[in-house]
Amino acid sequence: LVFSSQTIDSFKKHLRTFLPTALVVKDDLVALRLIQWVNNQGIKIPKDYSIISINNSSFAEIMHPFLTTYDINIQELGKESVRRLVAILKDENTEPQKVTIPFHLIERESVTSI
């Protein structure tokens, strides 16, 4: 399932008909809101749902349970974006370039294995 920007409201509507075992959330802050709502419903993370997010923000290590998240190397993304922008500003004929920034999964308490 893919939810709109109203992620939690959409999730609430679908929860009655679809029983997920895991959720991938687009950002740690959205995951924090979702975990708070889920906890208030008596749903246990990771026993009932595993949650994985993207970003590895400081929220990932202060919320409970600690959030499993992909560290997308935001500093390197920023550096490379600036490098590319400067190259374009210096020469508007600069060719587009595909750049891959390494990322990795940081497994914490919000997931469980079978």
Results as ranks from 00 to 15, higher is better:
29 L>G: 02
77 L>S: 00
46 P>S: 11
95 E>W: 00
74 I>E: 07
59 F>T: 08
15 L>M: 11
25 V>F: 01
54 I>V: 15
23 L>F: 02
48 D>E: 10
80 E>D: 02
31 A>F: 09
40 N>Q: 14
28 D>C: 08
41 Q>R: 13
47 K>I: 11
91 D>T: 08
79 K>H: 07
45 I>S: 03
87 A>Q: 11
52 I>T: 14
80 E>H: 08
22 A>K: 05
73 N>R: 11
87 A>R: 09
38 V>H: 04
33 R>Q: 15
38 V>M: 13
37 W>K: 04
58 S>F: 14
15 L>C: 00
96 P>H: 10
28 D>Y: 03
31 A>Q: 08
73 N>P: 10
88 I>R: 15
50 S>D: 04
69 T>F: 07
27 D>S: 13
18 F>Y: 14
36 Q>Y: 11
39 N>M: 04
52 I>S: 08
42 G>P: 07
41 Q>T: 01
37 W>F: 15
23 L>G: 03
81 S>E: 00
26 K>E: 12
67 L>R: 00
84 R>F: 09
28 D>T: 07
31 A>E: 09
20 P>C: 03
18 F>H: 12
87 A>H: 01
93 N>L: 07
32 L>Y: 12
91 D>F: 03
49 Y>W: 15
62 I>Y: 12
73 N>H: 13
82 V>C: 06
31 A>Y: 05
46 P>H: 08
33 R>K: 15
15 L>N: 04
23 L>S: 00
88 I>F: 15
17 T>D: 11
57 S>W: 11
93 N>H: 13
26 K>M: 09
65 P>N: 05
